[in-house]
């Protein structure tokens, strides 16, 4: 069993501030972290590797310094890491990103399962996983809250959808996107950290993947961000002050307003 986990380096959006005068994001000094959802994808991969044997390879596409999230994944338990990086990949949207990652999975050759986190916290698109599946022409199970089993060339998983749980079975190879409900990610281990510091991580560029610049990066991206604005923050909300009794009476009025009228 070889499981590839596609991860992303993201800015810690909790640390992003807005320049109040210009209305732009201040990203300077904002730490770059492993996308939190990806920790769950990694944990799911580790669990099945530990149970079934095999290896977990962690992949990311990004600038050279995105390598740090790969080392973090190795510290948690990934066996191998692979950086997909090239100037030609810069500015990619989800189409071009998934196209490039799928080419890397194809080049790896013997991958049985690709796992991604549900979404990345910077873009929040949740599109890369299914797009990788489309590029590979593999089946997909998205929004997985629980993987029940992997056996006989199939994966059985629970999709958490509106109003309930769909129990879905898919043949392998397949792409799965993981929700936070699926597991509790392990912490990095000391041995993992020591391994991560020393590991040589290969970098594959556009020539390694045999792609055309027209299908990667900004040139290969059908969508583009044209404007960025800050959401309206002003509120003309009404503030209530007073004794707890007074406040409770007003709140009860608000909550029961429709019932009573």
């Amino acid at each position: 069993m070889r499981i590839a986990v596609a991860v992303k380096q993201v800015p810690d959006t909790a640390e992003v501030r807005i320049d109040p005068e210009r209305g732009t994001l201040i990203r300077e000094g904002v730490p770059s972290i492993l996308n939190p959802f990806d920790e769950y994808a990694l944990e799911e991969a580790f669990r099945w590797r530990d149970e079934l044997g095999g290896t977990v390879v962690v992949i990311t596409m990004g600038p050279p310094w995105a390598e740090s999230v790969l080392r973090e994944a190795v510290a948690m338990g990934a066996d191998e890491a692979l950086l997909i990086s090239d100037r030609a990949f810069a500015g990619a949207d989800t189409w071009a990103t998934s196209h490039t990652l799928a080419a890397a999975v194809t080049k790896l050759g013997d991958v049985d399962l690709v796992i991604t986190g549900k979404q990345a916290i910077d873009g929040d698109t949740a599109q890369t996983g299914p797009s990788i599946a489309a590029s590979l022409d593999w089946p997909q199970i998205t929004f997985v809250g629980k993987v029940r089993s992997i056996e006989d060339g199939h994966i059985l998983a629970e999709r958490y959808v509106e109003g309930g749980i769909e129990v879905v079975r898919s043949s392998l190879p397949a792409v799965v996107t993981i929700l936070k409900d699926a597991n509790t990610p392990r912490l990095p281990s000391l041995r993992g950290k020591m391994k991560a510091r020393k590991l040589e991580i290969p970098t594959w560029g556009i020539d390694d993947l045999g792609l055309d610049p027209a299908e990667t990066g900004l040139d290969g991206s059908p969508t583009r961000v044209v404007t960025i604005s800050t959401p309206e923050t002003s509120s003309d909300g009404e503030m209530h002050r007073g004794t707890p009794e007074e406040l409770a009476a007003v709140l009860a009025d608000l909550l029961l307003g429709e019932e009573e009228s």
């Binding site: 949207d93 989800t94 189409w95 998934s98 196209h99 873009g123 929040d124 698109t125 949740a126 599109q127 890369t128 996983g129 299914p130 797009s131 599946a133 489309a134 590029s135 997909q140 998205t142 929004f143 991206s221 059908p222 969508t223």
Partner: peptide, 17 residues
């Protein structure tokens, strides 16, 4: 969100989430 990325990728067009 399961279906649209798959179609957009196949049709080589853009998708906004």
């Amino acid at each position: 969100r399961d279906l649209m990325p798959r179609i957009a990728k196949n049709l080589n067009t853009g998708l906004t989430a």
